[in-house]
């Protein structure tokens, strides 16, 4: 099938690529660009492992055509840390024990980041809602929720 041009910004880097229409954003990231932080846990939208931010909003990269991301800004877990500084959410996940096997972690972080960007004062229920499309088999979610709450709290303090 014919490749089509794709202009895309990923973690702040601009790419001019040519991709096949049936390439998903997840395949583009993992297979073509070696950004393996996003994980395929199901390939059909259910598990949340592949979640990335598209223009600041969490979306499933396994159910997004790479071409549909044309002209957007994509953030993956690799792009969360800025200039060697961990994102407060990453720091909080680490400190709160929100990471066990880690397979769900990047998706969880991206959903949490999406929430923090769009609703920095989210409460417990909103946090749970934001990550409710993500399955974690290890943590029972408790520590993940606490980790996000702590960051939201901090952003409240700053005000």
């Amino acid at each position: 099938m014919n490749k089509q041009p794709l202009e895309i910004s990923i973690n702040g880097d601009c790419y001019s690529l040519a991709v096949e229409p049936n390439r998903t954003l997840l395949e583009l990231l993992r297979e073509d660009l070696d950004l393996t932080g996003a994980k395929e846990g199901c390939g059909e939208g259910v598990c949340g492992g592949c979640t990335v931010l598209m223009d600041g909003k969490p979306v499933r990269s396994c159910l997004t055509l790479a071409l549909e991301a044309s002209g957007t800004h994509i953030t993956t877990v690799e792009g969360l840390a800025q200039k060697g500084e961990l994102d407060p959410l990453q720091q909080s996940f680490i400190e709160h024990g929100a990471v066990q096997c880690g397979f769900c972690t990047s998706g969880m972080l991206m959903a949490a980041k999406g929430l923090a960007l769009n609703n920095p004062h989210a409460g417990n229920k909103e946090i749970r809602n934001a990550i409710s499309g993500h399955i974690c088999r290890c943590t029972g979610y408790t520590k993940i929720i606490e980790a996000v709450e702590a960051v939201v709290d901090r952003s409240l303090e700053k005000r």
Partner: peptide, 10 residues
Amino acid sequence: IGAPSIQHFS
């Protein structure tokens, strides 16, 4: 419908 990060934003 589903969950936020599955389809609410797309």
